[in-house]
Simulated scan of single mutants.
Amino acid sequence: MSSPIRILLVDDQELIRVGFRLVLEAETDIEVVGEAADGREGVEAAVRLAPDVVLMDVRMPHMDGIEATARLRDLRPETRVLVLTTFDLDEYAFGALEAGASGFLLKDAQRAELLAAVRAVHRGDAVLAPRVTRRVIEQLAPRVTPPAGPDPSASLTERERDVYLAMARGRTNVEIAEELFLGESTVKTHVGRVLAKLGARDRIHAVILAHRWGHVEQSAD
Score class of each variant (00 low, 15 high):
residue 126 A to G: 09
residue 198 L to R: 06
residue 80 R to W: 01
residue 204 I to Q: 03
residue 157 T to G: 14
residue 172 T to N: 07
residue 201 R to M: 01
residue 181 F to P: 00
residue 82 L to W: 08
residue 187 V to F: 11
residue 171 R to C: 11
residue 168 A to C: 14
residue 127 V to F: 14
residue 158 E to W: 01
residue 69 T to W: 14
residue 219 S to E: 10
residue 80 R to D: 08
residue 68 A to Q: 10
residue 35 E to S: 13
residue 7 I to H: 10
residue 2 S to C: 01
residue 100 G to H: 11
residue 174 V to C: 03
residue 136 V to M: 15
residue 71 R to H: 08
residue 105 L to E: 09
residue 138 E to D: 14
residue 151 D to P: 01
residue 170 G to F: 05
residue 61 P to L: 08
residue 24 L to F: 10
residue 20 F to G: 01
residue 196 A to T: 14
residue 139 Q to N: 07
residue 69 T to V: 12
residue 153 S to R: 14
residue 7 I to V: 15
residue 93 A to W: 00
residue 196 A to W: 00
residue 194 V to E: 05
residue 154 A to I: 04
residue 122 H to S: 10
residue 199 G to S: 04
residue 145 T to M: 09
residue 57 D to K: 00
residue 142 P to W: 07
residue 15 L to E: 10
residue 151 D to C: 00
residue 85 T to F: 02
residue 60 M to Q: 14
residue 137 I to D: 07
residue 193 R to N: 08
residue 187 V to Q: 11
residue 29 D to R: 12
residue 89 L to E: 15
residue 117 A to P: 04
residue 184 E to S: 07
residue 106 L to W: 00
residue 64 D to W: 07
residue 5 I to S: 00
residue 16 I to H: 00
residue 162 D to W: 00
residue 154 A to V: 14
residue 52 D to V: 09
residue 166 A to G: 12
residue 52 D to A: 11
residue 88 D to H: 12
residue 102 S to I: 00
residue 215 H to E: 13
residue 118 V to N: 07
residue 169 R to N: 04
residue 148 A to W: 01
residue 194 V to N: 04
residue 172 T to W: 09
residue 63 M to V: 05
residue 7 I to C: 12
residue 187 V to P: 11
residue 5 I to T: 15
residue 190 H to E: 15
residue 149 G to F: 05
residue 69 T to R: 13
residue 9 L to I: 15
residue 156 L to Q: 02
residue 62 H to I: 15
residue 76 R to Q: 14
residue 171 R to K: 12
